[in-house]
Deep mutational scan, measured.
Amino acid sequence: LGPKYVGLWDFKSRTDEELSFRAGDVFHVARKEEQWWWATLLDEAGGAVAQGYVPHNYLAERE
């Protein structure tokens, strides 16, 4: 699936296409579209919880 990303700060969605998340949440990014990335929010087991657009500057690649 490629690298995983972690949320740096809490983010509250403003549209139906955006995905709310908390700092520390883990994502798989499917598409990078300039300022907004289409991402899947993952649970602790790595299963998909939700999908939506997230601001790229709120995520960091997980080491």
Rank of each mutant, 00 (worst) to 15 (best):
E18N: 07
A48E: 13
G52M: 03
L19W: 04
W9D: 03
G52I: 04
R22I: 07
F11M: 01
V29P: 02
R31Q: 07
D10T: 06
R14E: 12
V6A: 03
D25E: 03
H56I: 10
E34V: 10
R62D: 12
L8K: 09
R31K: 10
L8T: 02
G46W: 05
D43L: 06
H28L: 15
P3C: 12
L8C: 11
A30Y: 13
T15G: 12
N57E: 10
A39P: 00
P55F: 05
T40A: 06
F27L: 10
E17Q: 14
K4N: 10
A50T: 07
V29L: 03
R14F: 08
L1W: 13
H56Y: 14
Q51P: 01
S13R: 09
E44T: 09
Y58W: 06
E44H: 10
E63F: 11
E44S: 12
G7M: 05
K4M: 15
F11R: 06
Y53V: 03
V54D: 01
W36F: 12
A60K: 13
L42K: 00
A50D: 08
S13F: 03
P55C: 08
W36V: 07
D10S: 07
E34R: 11
K12S: 12
D16M: 09
V49R: 08
K4C: 14
T15A: 10
W9C: 15
L1N: 13
N57S: 09
L59E: 03
E33T: 09
T15Y: 09
F11E: 02
P55H: 07
V29K: 00
G46I: 09
V6I: 12
W38F: 12
W37R: 00
E44I: 08
S20T: 10
V29M: 01
V29F: 03
E33P: 02
Y53R: 10
A23F: 03
W9L: 09
W36K: 09
A23E: 07
R62K: 14
Y53F: 09
W36Y: 12
D25P: 01
R22N: 11
D16N: 12
V6Q: 04
N57L: 07
W38T: 01
W38V: 05
L1Y: 12
S20F: 04
T15R: 14
G52K: 04
V49L: 10
G24E: 03
E33F: 12
L59D: 04
S13D: 02
Q35K: 13
V26P: 02
N57P: 02
F21R: 00
R22A: 08
A30S: 15
A39I: 04
Q35V: 11
E34P: 11
L1T: 12
A60T: 11
L8H: 02
D43Y: 06
D43R: 02
L1H: 13
Q35S: 11
W36C: 06
A45L: 12
L1I: 12
L19G: 01
W36L: 10
L41D: 00
E44Q: 10
S13V: 01
E61A: 11
S20M: 03
D25C: 07
V26R: 06
P55R: 07
L59I: 05
P3K: 14
L1F: 13
E63N: 12
G46V: 04
T40E: 08
W36G: 08
E61C: 09
L19E: 02
L8E: 03
H56F: 13
E61M: 13
G47K: 15
